[in-house]
Simulated scan of single mutants.
Amino acid sequence: MTAADFADQLKTLDATLRNIEAVLDLDRLRQDKAELEQQASAPDLWDDQARAQQVTSKLSYVNGEIGKLEGLRRRLDDAHVLLELAEAEDDPGALAEVGTELASLHKAIEEMEVRTLLSGEYDAREALVAIRAGAGGVDAADFAEMLLRMYLRWAERHGYPTEVYDTSYAEEAGLKSATFAVKAPYAYGTLSVESGTHRLVRISPFDNQGRRQTSFAGVEVLPVVEQTDHIDIPENELRVDVYRSSGPGGQSVNTTDSAVRITHVPTGIVVTCQNEKSQLQNKASALRVLQARLLERKRQEEQAKMEGLKADAAGSWGDQMRSYVLHPYQMVKDLRTEEETGNPSAVFDGELDDFIEAGIRWRKQREREDGSA
């Protein structure tokens, strides 16, 4: 490519980045940072641990967003200076360096642009993720555990705090179900495209004849409930059972009746939490999950009413959305977006960003099409 081609690319990237800075409102982010820093420096901050964690989590997120935007702007300005030097000195090596940097910048700015597509009512919230083993016996339970690790690794890669509320272990291997929270702003908007049925094809490690096995697991992503949601649950609508935790745990986890199961009688929704040592902590965590499920149910009912359709609270569970094939070839493919990779190991180790970004773009495109229909 010529210097003129690179100059055109720089102009396009600059316009895209300016649009991102405007949509994400960089000035407002800087104001939020100043306010959060003031809150974080309060001497009584940790008197309320839940609020303290919320403040520090938001501050970390805002710092990250500002750092990304300012970093991209510096790189773009540096690339512009490097291009001018390459032209002035007629230096092919420097020109090639500009090309490499522009390719890297294009990908980074494209990734940042995805954040501007998260404008749904609950997109800015933290996320609750529930994983359940489906058809496939012990392989499905093992697959559910693989998915749990995959999402926790994804969150770890991004520096997002997580908290596992419940893990129900299967008899032979793996998990029957698991529920965890991703405590970062926009975690719900980002991960909501992961809802649906995931499918694994492989040679079963649990089959002594080495046969190929297909198994399924369901992923459900919910927005964390906030105080403004007004999800009131009368005590007489709840049935609370306590029992002894099962599976791996500390010395007091498995020896006391600390695990809690809450049934919401009117809807039949059941949630459990057993990962804390205290029965009160487990009950509080279970109530948070129940409120999130009821909020999602309310949202779906309102959406169904607007569309003149009957609500289906479990709609996303029946939608097969991604296949993970380990035999006879290696491939992970999203069935909605056609995004795919030949490296399943990397995906199971948390490299999900390409799939998530493609899913967000796909969802936004469908919203536009529905709006113009």
Rank of each mutant, 00 (worst) to 15 (best):
A133N: 03
Y165K: 09
D142K: 07
T162M: 08
V129I: 15
I233W: 09
R244G: 02
M150S: 13
E194T: 07
P234H: 10
D232N: 14
E237Y: 12
E156P: 05
L238W: 02
R149P: 01
M146Q: 13
D232S: 14
Y188Q: 10
A133F: 01
S168D: 10
L148K: 12
D166F: 05
I131Y: 11
N236P: 01
L191P: 02
G250Y: 00
I131D: 06
A127N: 08
V201A: 04
E126Y: 12
S215H: 10
Y151T: 04
G249D: 01
S177Y: 03
E235W: 05
D207K: 08
R212Q: 13
N208R: 12
F206K: 00
V201E: 02
H158S: 04
F143E: 05
V129Y: 02
D123V: 12
E194K: 00
K183H: 00
Y188T: 10
V221M: 04
P223V: 12
D232K: 14
Y186G: 05
T162A: 11
T167W: 00
R202L: 03
P205M: 09
F206A: 00
G189N: 04
P205T: 10
Y188I: 09
Y122V: 03
R157G: 15
A217F: 15
G159M: 04
E220M: 12
R199L: 09
G174H: 09
H230Q: 14
E235Q: 15
T214R: 13
Y169C: 00
G218P: 03
I231M: 08
A140G: 09
L222D: 04
T197Q: 14
L191N: 11
S245M: 03
R199S: 02
N236L: 07
P223R: 14
K176I: 10
V242L: 01
L147N: 02
T162I: 07
M146T: 12
P205C: 04
D123E: 07
P205W: 08
Y160I: 00
L128H: 13
L191R: 06
S177C: 01
R211T: 07
F180M: 02
A184D: 01
G137I: 06
N208F: 07
V224K: 15
T228C: 03
L152G: 06
Y160K: 13
E194Q: 08
G249W: 02
Q227M: 12
Y169P: 09
T197C: 15
A217V: 15
V253C: 00
E226R: 13
I231T: 00
S245G: 11
V182I: 06
V182L: 02
A127Q: 02
S204R: 10
D232L: 12
A130T: 15
S177K: 01
R157L: 15
E156A: 14
K176P: 06
T197M: 15
P248E: 05
A127V: 13
P234G: 03
R157H: 15
E121R: 14
A135Q: 11
G120F: 05
G218Q: 07
S204T: 11
A178W: 04
E145N: 14
V225Y: 12
Y188S: 07
H158G: 11
G196C: 07
E226A: 09
H158T: 00
